[in-house]
Design a protein around this nucleic acid. Structure first.
Lengths: 175, 175
DNA sequence: ATGAAATTGAGAATTGATCGCATCTGTAGA
DNA sequence: TCTACAGATGCGATCAATTCTCAATTTCAT
């Protein structure tokens, strides 16, 4: 009776890896700044390791895929980056991604949603899903860059404190 | 004096691979249906082979990257798919992608663009770029599927006449 | 024409992600 | 509670897309 309803309803067995992964995303849901909300498979892997739980990467990929299919998680893929997942709890939203520090902010705009539906309808297009991401500098990075221009956007140095992976275009440097 | 201004202005040397790749995208610009407009590195590779021009894949990836940096081409990355490129000639636009046949339609909506700018401004976000893609069934596929439901969305059979790659989620079957 | 600098091509290497399979483990039913 | 077995895991192999390495070739300013 400790089995979370998300798992029960999905038909997936309540295994340790699944329970822990679900819990991880649920805890991260309201992690305030710099979205630990959005985690890649590797992010999850490392988080679990920190909790002294060794789960095979393959398992993590599998579970993330199953959770996404079950609508427990949402899979997001920002421009050239690895896939990240977030818990599917809050309302639908789109994202603003800082290309400097990697921070992900969420937003929702009714007007945009409505225009999308209208445009699709006009073309006889049956809308299933959509993905809208704005890329640029978050307030903090814009401010900092104004102070010492030139240093910014090299990205390399900044990729350290990038939460779930790295800034866009910064495709190297992991592990 | 045959050197296209795109190359001249980019500072890139006018080599055969570059000339041919540029020409390919320029010719494809107005290819009417089912975007040959959007081509992956492999697509380009195959097209050049058809013209009896063997260019190493590595070179194609390099040139595409350079062209994207020079704003000659635009790199697009639809959900789980490989990167595709299109010539950066026409006005800015976003995309509707058919998840069944892979067709890519383009659209532009002033209202959406304006909302995006407004939302970014409200959050102190310096907008650099954005990506909006609508996923669903194009008119043709929606009509066909209504005729013989169930058959659709298996995707596999359809991936053949998919122009630049394959339908979304159909990550296998290439070469 | 000449040489420094840029570019290419072939293959090796990386990276993110998936697969195959032998071994475990939840969980429904006895 | 016990048990059988479908389902799940973990490991390593594998895959696909992309990038890197480096020697050989080509471009272009002089």
């Amino acid at each position: 009776m400790e089995i979370p309803k998300e798992l029960r309803e999905s038909g997936l067995k309540a295994t340790l890896p699944r329970l822990k992964i679900l819990e991880l995303f649920q805890r991260a849901e309201h992690s305030a700044p710099n979205g630990t909300r959005h985690m890649s498979a590797e992010d999850v892997y490392r988080h679990l390791l920190n909790e002294n739980l060794e789960v095979g990467l393959a398992t993590i990929y599998r579970v993330l895929m199953q959770f996404a299919e079950a609508k427990i998680l949402l899979r997001r893929q920002f421009d050239g980056e690895r896939a990240v997942f977030e818990i599917n709890a809050s309302e639908h939203h789109d994202h603003m991604v800082c290309v400097s520090c990697g921070k992900v902010e969420e937003f929702f705009d009714k007007a945009i949603e409505e225009r999308q539906m209208l445009l699709a309808r006009q073309r006889g297009f049956t809308l299933r899903d959509h993905s809208l991401s704005l890329y640029g500098l978050c307030q903090d990075c814009a401010t900092r860059d104004r102070g010492s221009p030139g240093a910014a956007l090299s990205g390399a140095m900044l990729s350290q404190h990038s939460p779930s992976g790295s800034a866009r275009l910064n495709l190297k440097s992991h592990k």
